[in-house]
Design a protein around this nucleic acid. Structure first.
Lengths: 170, 170
DNA sequence: TATTGTTATACTCTATAACTATA
DNA sequence: TATAGTTATAGAGTATAACAATA
């Protein structure tokens, strides 16, 4: 049990680099979004996806796909955005169970207000350091990883219920 | 500030891939840590850094360096770990202001209990998809990005002791 | 019965600012 | 005065489970 082949030094380096860059970037971006437009990361993501959709509206389920959060978390964020007047929610016409989320003009405006700073941060933090080749490499490699992650079973198959001594966290 | 050159398609693809992989990986890892050992991501990070240090102890300041969180967040997590018996805290001998954090045997054990699963997840999610060349490329590219991120002044420009403040204020 | 979404609840985590104490 | 760390507070975000409504 204790002898799962450890990650070698190069894997570790790659893993840590990925983790750190992801964290720092996320942190910087979230701060910018909050300062420039009072948006959290998840909220920005929702608005951006709506703006990127053909008619500026998507169902909750569409929004949920590809998000890391739970349904209730999405509902919570949608409520925040609705209260702020940035989106509207209405039952779908073809399927009354569904909720159609629509970007309001105010939402679009907010997005426009925040995007320049967003782009600036990502430019400065990420792309100022990268050549075109770097970018291509990252896209290729991480794109593959992402596709794989979306496919791989979420680790219920791992037979790891060994010790049985569930330490009470006290 | 209204005319920031937008990111081109390739930059966007790279940015999204990075963001998504980072999120998915973090999410999967945190779930594993919680299930296998009742640890949160930050808690695991603290334990791991202590285990990786020469004598299994570091000052709070050492732990704070390189972390994205605030000092109070670190204090909170340290308190959690101390209550769980995984670390101890004691004033430093040479400088009574400092707190020395030490990994307990229990903490080391907990880490050992969690590591196999951790490694397994990272292996399966990340490295099963990557060639040695991929890994080298990621380490090189993201390593450079990370170094740069650590250097670049934060956007909201706190007064820095060094010269070269890029933008006085927003 | 299955799917879509919301709500109620409880919890974890975080940041800010005020505070203590040492240097 | 500056540094190391803690605490008090207050808020944001999340997951789980129960729930309602529609298919």
């Amino acid at each position: 049990m204790t002898d799962a082949t450890p990650l070698d030094a190069e894997q570790l380096a790659a893993y840590f680099a990925l983790k750190e860059v992801g964290s720092l970037l996320e942190h910087a971006v979230e701060q910018q979004l909050r300062v420039d437009g009072g948006l959290s990361g998840p909220q920005f993501q929702i608005l951006a996806r709506l703006a990127g959709s053909p008619r500026g509206h998507l169902r909750m389920t569409d929004l949920a796909d590809g998000l890391v959060y739970s349904r209730s978390a999405l509902t919570y964020q949608a409520a925040q955005l609705e209260n702020a007047g940035l989106i509207t929610r209405a039952p779908a016409e073809d399927d009354e169970r569904s909720t159609v989320v629509t970007l309001t003009p105010g939402g679009r405006e907010r997005l426009g207000k925040v995007m320049p700073g967003h782009i600036e941060v990502v430019q400065r933090l990420l792309f100022d350091t990268l050549t075109r080749d770097d970018i291509a490499a990252i896209t290729d490699i991480l794109g593959r990883v992402r596709d794989r992650m979306r496919t791989v079973p979420p680790r219920s198959a791992a037979p790891r219920r060994s010790t049985g001594a569930r330490k009470p966290a006290d």
